[in-house]
């Protein structure tokens, strides 16, 4: 089966600081060689801690920031601001985004209806049609159009505003929706409503989601596939059940075991990672996780581990995996004394 969205070797380095001649003195390797693909109708969850590059990845996909390198294609059509690639405007008709801050992402001076009808008009829909569509969409996201069309963002609650943002994203009739921490700021009781809405809309419109979140429980619930990022790189990916039940990368294991238990009688013994995620300006050599990894050996600090198959579509980048081409070397080397 061919992928709907395919991303190959995406890279973005941000310059930090300038010397006398205006040349950057350092770079943040925000996204460093990220590749993945999503099949139509599936939800890919992207998890990781702050600074891991998950939001930058989303912004690069939308071309809100220009990638340094890499290819983004939908149905085999490659998009970008380079000659020979399809224009970004067309990409944005097929892919839309919902952000975490529901208030900041709406123009405070536009009514809800104007906000939703704005995009389609830019893409050539007549005003009358766009407004009718906006009303229909409000109905679909559970807001009564007769009550809400004339309202302004500040008159709405956080949950209602996020529904408006979802309606606006859908107004262009995209195939893919990027949800960047879209439910993270909502209270749990409202979050559940919006998650249900997302599931319903996905079925109704045959959508494909990229669901970016730091909430591992929510990602497990909503995703079909999951990708774990650490310091700008993908360390593990695979179908949700396999990845959650049998995490292969030591970072994924630590991440999953750090989630507080949700039922009192299943209070876990936490395996706690030491230290904070390192600074992406000067990421560690070799495997970027090695300074925090209890299994690290000499090879881990000198060489980047290849992405290796764990089982089926489940893969991880770690020398500990038997299938890793350098696994033998890893076994032979001594433990690094802490």
């Amino acid at each position: 089966m061919t992928a709907l969205l395919r991303v190959q070797d995406l890279k973005k380095y941000f310059p930090v600081g300038k010397d006398l001649l205006g040349r950057p003195t350092q770079v943040v390797q925000a996204v460093d060689g990220v590749s993945f693909s999503v099949e139509k109708g599936r939800t890919l969850g992207i998890v990781g801690e702050s600074g891991c590059g998950k939001s930058t990845t989303a912004r690069l996909l939308m071309h809100l920031i220009e990638p340094d390198e890499g290819r983004i294609s939908i149905r085999g059509k490659e998009f970008g601001n380079i000659s020979g690639r399809h224009p970004v405007a067309e990409l944005r008709r097929q892919m839309q985004m919902v952000f975490q801050d529901s208030y900041a992402s709406l123009n405070p001076r536009l009514t809800i209806e104007d906000s939703i009808a704005f995009g389609p008009q830019i893409h050539g829909v007549s005003e009358r049609e766009a407004r009718q569509q906006a009303r229909d969409l409000l109905e679909k996201v559970g807001l009564n159009p007769n009550v809400f069309v004339r309202r302004y963002p500040h008159e709405l609650s956080g949950g209602q505003r996020q529904r408006v943002n979802i309606a606006r994203a859908l107004a262009i009739k995209p195939e893919i929706v990027l949800l960047d921490e879209a439910v993270s700021a909502l209270d749990k009781s409202v979050q559940a409503q919006v998650l249900n809405l997302l599931s319903d809309l996905k079925k109704e419109f045959g959508l494909t989601y990229l669901f970016i979140s730091h909430d591992l429980n929510v990602v497990q619930y909503i995703s079909d596939d999951v990708m774990v990022m650490y310091l700008g790189q993908v360390v593990e990916s695979g179908p949700v059940e396999q990845l959650y039940q049998n995490p292969a990368h030591p970072y994924t294991r630590a991440l999953l075991s750090s989630v507080p238990s949700q039922t009192p009688h299943e209070r876990k013994q936490h395996k706690v990672l030491e230290g904070d995620p390192p600074n992406p300006i000067a990421p560690p050599s070799g495997c970027r996780f090695h300074p925090r990894c209890e299994h690290a050996r000499a090879i881990c600090s000198s060489q980047q581990p290849e992405t290796t198959r764990v089982e089926g579509l489940h893969q991880a980048a770690c020398f500990m995996l038997p299938a890793n081409p350098n696994h033998e070397k890893y076994i032979q080397l001594q433990e690094v004394s802490a």
């Binding site: 801690e49 702050s50 730091h214 591992l216 630590a254 991440l255 750090s258 989630v259 507080p260 936490h270 706690v272 990672l273 030491e274 904070d276 995620p277």
Partner: peptide, 11 residues
């Protein structure tokens, strides 16, 4: 705080 840091601080 991030998940791995949150649990450190709680404990």
């Amino acid at each position: 705080l991030d998940a791995t840091v949150q649990i450190q601080v709680l404990l």
